[in-house]
Amino acid sequence: MSTITLTTWSLDMSSPGDLVPAAAPGPEVTVVRSEVPSPEFSRFLYASVGGDIHWTDRLALTRAQWVEQLGRPGVETWVAYDRGTPAGYVELDPQDDGVVEIMYFGLLPEFRGRRIGGHLLSLGVARAWDLASRWPDREPTRRVWVHTCSQDGPTAMANYQRRGFKLFATETESKEESETPGPWPGA
Protein backbone atom coordinates (compact mmCIF):
# COMPACT_ATOMS: atom_id res chain seq x y z
CA MET A 1 0.00 0.00 0.00
CA SER A 2 1.26 3.50 -0.74
CA THR A 3 1.98 6.20 1.81
CA ILE A 4 0.46 9.68 1.77
CA THR A 5 1.28 12.86 3.64
CA LEU A 6 -1.63 13.89 5.85
CA THR A 7 -1.81 17.44 7.15
CA THR A 8 -4.12 18.25 10.04
CA TRP A 9 -4.99 21.84 10.90
CA SER A 10 -6.48 22.90 14.24
CA LEU A 11 -8.45 26.13 14.38
CA ASP A 12 -10.31 27.96 17.12
CA MET A 13 -12.18 31.07 18.13
CA SER A 14 -12.24 32.61 21.59
CA SER A 15 -15.30 34.83 21.44
CA PRO A 16 -18.81 34.55 20.01
CA GLY A 17 -18.10 37.90 18.36
CA ASP A 18 -15.47 36.17 16.18
CA LEU A 19 -18.20 34.26 14.30
CA VAL A 20 -18.85 35.60 10.81
CA PRO A 21 -22.16 33.98 9.84
CA ALA A 22 -22.83 32.84 6.29
CA ALA A 23 -26.03 33.80 4.55
CA ALA A 24 -28.88 31.31 4.73
CA PRO A 25 -29.23 29.35 1.49
CA GLY A 26 -33.03 29.75 1.36
CA PRO A 27 -36.22 28.77 3.18
CA GLU A 28 -36.05 25.18 1.91
CA VAL A 29 -33.05 24.52 4.21
CA THR A 30 -33.68 24.15 7.93
CA VAL A 31 -31.34 23.18 10.77
CA VAL A 32 -32.80 21.23 13.67
CA ARG A 33 -31.27 19.73 16.81
CA SER A 34 -31.63 15.98 16.99
CA GLU A 35 -32.75 15.99 20.62
CA VAL A 36 -33.19 12.23 21.03
CA PRO A 37 -29.76 10.59 20.74
CA SER A 38 -30.02 7.94 18.03
CA PRO A 39 -26.96 5.79 17.28
CA GLU A 40 -28.55 4.60 14.04
CA PHE A 41 -29.25 8.12 12.77
CA SER A 42 -25.85 9.43 13.87
CA ARG A 43 -24.07 6.50 12.22
CA PHE A 44 -26.05 7.16 9.02
CA LEU A 45 -24.95 10.81 9.07
CA TYR A 46 -21.34 9.92 9.86
CA ALA A 47 -21.04 7.28 7.13
CA SER A 48 -22.96 9.30 4.55
CA VAL A 49 -21.03 12.54 5.09
CA GLY A 50 -17.61 10.99 5.62
CA GLY A 51 -17.72 7.95 3.38
CA ASP A 52 -15.95 9.61 0.47
CA ILE A 53 -13.46 11.63 2.55
CA HIS A 54 -11.86 8.90 4.67
CA TRP A 55 -13.91 9.14 7.87
CA THR A 56 -13.33 5.71 9.38
CA ASP A 57 -12.60 6.23 13.10
CA ARG A 58 -16.18 5.54 14.21
CA LEU A 59 -17.13 2.80 11.76
CA ALA A 60 -16.00 -0.02 14.08
CA LEU A 61 -17.87 1.31 17.13
CA THR A 62 -20.53 -0.92 18.61
CA ARG A 63 -24.04 0.37 19.15
CA ALA A 64 -23.27 0.59 22.88
CA GLN A 65 -20.23 2.79 22.16
CA TRP A 66 -22.37 5.08 19.98
CA VAL A 67 -24.94 5.31 22.80
CA GLU A 68 -22.19 6.18 25.27
CA GLN A 69 -20.69 8.87 23.01
CA LEU A 70 -24.02 10.50 22.12
CA GLY A 71 -25.41 10.27 25.65
CA ARG A 72 -22.75 12.38 27.33
CA PRO A 73 -24.22 15.61 28.74
CA GLY A 74 -23.80 18.46 26.28
CA VAL A 75 -23.13 16.38 23.16
CA GLU A 76 -25.44 17.75 20.49
CA THR A 77 -26.16 16.87 16.88
CA TRP A 78 -27.59 19.60 14.64
CA VAL A 79 -28.90 18.43 11.27
CA ALA A 80 -29.43 20.45 8.11
CA TYR A 81 -32.44 19.39 6.02
CA ASP A 82 -33.12 20.39 2.45
CA ARG A 83 -36.87 20.08 1.88
CA GLY A 84 -37.09 17.37 4.54
CA THR A 85 -34.04 15.37 3.43
CA PRO A 86 -30.95 15.20 5.68
CA ALA A 87 -28.22 17.22 3.96
CA GLY A 88 -25.49 17.33 6.62
CA TYR A 89 -24.74 17.72 10.29
CA VAL A 90 -22.56 19.21 12.96
CA GLU A 91 -21.79 17.37 16.20
CA LEU A 92 -20.75 19.38 19.25
CA ASP A 93 -18.53 17.78 21.86
CA PRO A 94 -18.24 19.64 25.17
CA GLN A 95 -14.91 19.39 26.94
CA ASP A 96 -13.52 20.66 30.21
CA ASP A 97 -13.09 24.33 31.11
CA GLY A 98 -15.77 25.75 28.80
CA VAL A 99 -14.29 24.31 25.60
CA VAL A 100 -16.51 22.90 22.85
CA GLU A 101 -15.10 20.96 19.93
CA ILE A 102 -16.89 20.72 16.63
CA MET A 103 -16.28 17.00 16.53
CA TYR A 104 -17.84 16.33 13.12
CA PHE A 105 -19.16 18.64 10.46
CA GLY A 106 -20.02 18.09 6.84
CA LEU A 107 -22.54 17.57 4.08
CA LEU A 108 -23.65 14.54 2.15
CA PRO A 109 -22.02 14.65 -1.30
CA GLU A 110 -25.26 15.53 -3.12
CA PHE A 111 -25.64 18.71 -1.04
CA ARG A 112 -22.11 20.10 -1.31
CA GLY A 113 -21.57 23.28 -3.30
CA ARG A 114 -25.08 24.60 -2.64
CA ARG A 115 -24.26 27.16 0.10
CA ILE A 116 -25.60 24.89 2.84
CA GLY A 117 -22.22 24.23 4.52
CA GLY A 118 -21.45 27.80 5.54
CA HIS A 119 -24.95 28.23 6.94
CA LEU A 120 -24.82 24.93 8.87
CA LEU A 121 -21.37 25.72 10.26
CA SER A 122 -22.53 29.21 11.31
CA LEU A 123 -25.49 27.76 13.22
CA GLY A 124 -23.35 24.99 14.72
CA VAL A 125 -20.77 27.46 16.01
CA ALA A 126 -23.51 29.70 17.44
CA ARG A 127 -24.97 26.66 19.23
CA ALA A 128 -21.51 25.81 20.59
CA TRP A 129 -21.29 29.30 22.07
CA ASP A 130 -24.71 29.05 23.76
CA LEU A 131 -24.41 25.37 24.78
CA ALA A 132 -24.56 26.19 28.51
CA SER A 133 -28.02 27.73 28.05
CA ARG A 134 -29.32 24.25 27.18
CA TRP A 135 -27.09 22.37 29.64
CA PRO A 136 -27.23 24.29 32.96
CA ASP A 137 -24.53 22.11 34.60
CA ARG A 138 -21.99 23.26 32.00
CA GLU A 139 -19.93 26.37 32.43
CA PRO A 140 -20.28 28.99 29.69
CA THR A 141 -18.33 28.34 26.52
CA ARG A 142 -15.07 30.27 26.34
CA ARG A 143 -13.50 28.57 23.31
CA VAL A 144 -14.73 26.66 20.25
CA TRP A 145 -12.29 24.63 18.20
CA VAL A 146 -12.20 22.27 15.25
CA HIS A 147 -9.69 20.30 13.26
CA THR A 148 -9.70 19.52 9.56
CA CYS A 149 -7.27 17.66 7.38
CA SER A 150 -6.00 17.39 3.84
CA GLN A 151 -8.40 14.50 3.18
CA ASP A 152 -11.49 16.55 4.04
CA GLY A 153 -13.47 18.33 1.36
CA PRO A 154 -11.59 20.93 -0.68
CA THR A 155 -13.57 23.87 0.76
CA ALA A 156 -13.48 22.82 4.43
CA MET A 157 -10.52 24.93 5.55
CA ALA A 158 -11.72 28.04 3.70
CA ASN A 159 -15.20 27.67 5.22
CA TYR A 160 -13.77 27.51 8.76
CA GLN A 161 -11.62 30.57 8.14
CA ARG A 162 -14.50 32.55 6.58
CA ARG A 163 -16.57 31.82 9.69
CA GLY A 164 -13.85 33.41 11.87
CA PHE A 165 -11.74 30.45 13.00
CA LYS A 166 -7.99 31.09 13.37
CA LEU A 167 -5.30 28.48 12.78
CA PHE A 168 -3.36 27.53 15.92
CA ALA A 169 -1.62 24.26 15.01
CA THR A 170 -0.53 22.28 11.97
CA GLU A 171 0.65 18.67 12.07
CA THR A 172 1.97 16.58 9.21
CA GLU A 173 2.38 12.82 9.25
CA SER A 174 2.93 9.97 6.83
CA LYS A 175 0.04 7.56 6.70
CA GLU A 176 -0.84 4.47 4.74
CA GLU A 177 -3.31 5.37 2.03
CA SER A 178 -6.66 3.69 2.48
CA GLU A 179 -9.66 3.37 0.27
CA THR A 180 -12.72 5.38 1.13
CA PRO A 181 -15.51 3.15 2.44
CA GLY A 182 -18.28 5.11 0.72
CA PRO A 183 -21.65 5.73 2.35
CA TRP A 184 -22.31 1.99 2.71
CA PRO A 185 -19.26 0.54 4.45
CA GLY A 186 -19.03 -3.18 3.93
CA ALA A 187 -21.67 -3.29 1.23
Rank of each mutant, 00 (worst) to 15 (best):
R112C: 10
Y104I: 02
V99P: 13
L123H: 00
A80R: 03
W129G: 12
A132E: 03
W66D: 04
Q65A: 10
W78L: 15
E68T: 07
E68Y: 08
D130C: 12
P109M: 00
H54I: 01
G106C: 05
L120Y: 00
E91Q: 13
R127M: 08
D57M: 04
R114S: 02
R114L: 01
V125L: 15
P94K: 01
G106R: 00
P94R: 01
V79N: 08
G71W: 09
L131H: 07
W78I: 04
E76V: 10
V75R: 07
L107K: 15
M103Y: 14
L121Y: 10
L131A: 11
T85A: 14
F105Y: 15
L121Q: 07
Y104V: 03
T85G: 01
W66F: 13
A64G: 04
E110N: 10
L123S: 00
A80E: 02
D130Y: 04
A132D: 14
I102C: 09
T77D: 04
T56Q: 10
I102M: 11
I102D: 11
P73C: 01
Y104S: 10
L108E: 06
D57T: 07
S122R: 14
V100P: 15
R134F: 09
R72C: 08
E110M: 08
I53C: 02
D96T: 04
D57L: 03
S133I: 05
W55C: 02
H119K: 09
H119R: 14
D82Q: 13
Y104E: 09
V90W: 14
G117V: 06
D82T: 08
I102V: 15
Y104A: 06
F111T: 05
V90Y: 13
V75F: 15
D82H: 15
A128H: 05
Y104T: 06
A60R: 06
E68I: 08
E110V: 11
L61F: 10
A87H: 06
Q95T: 08
L120C: 03
L123W: 01
T62N: 07
L131T: 09
R115H: 15
V79F: 07
V90D: 08
V79D: 04
I53M: 02
W55H: 07
A132K: 02
L92K: 05
Q95M: 08
D130V: 09
A128M: 02
A80S: 07
A132Q: 04
D96S: 15
I116D: 14
A64M: 05
D82I: 02
L123P: 00
A128C: 10
W66Y: 13
Y104K: 10
R63S: 03
G88C: 04
L121A: 14
R114T: 04
V75S: 03
V99A: 14
W129A: 14
L59Q: 01
A132T: 09
D82N: 10
A128Y: 13
R115V: 10
Y89D: 08
W55F: 09
S122H: 13
A128D: 12
R72K: 14
G117Q: 05
F105L: 13
R83L: 12
Q65H: 09
R63F: 02
R115E: 15
P86V: 03
L123Y: 00
L108G: 01
H119A: 11
R127W: 12
L120M: 04
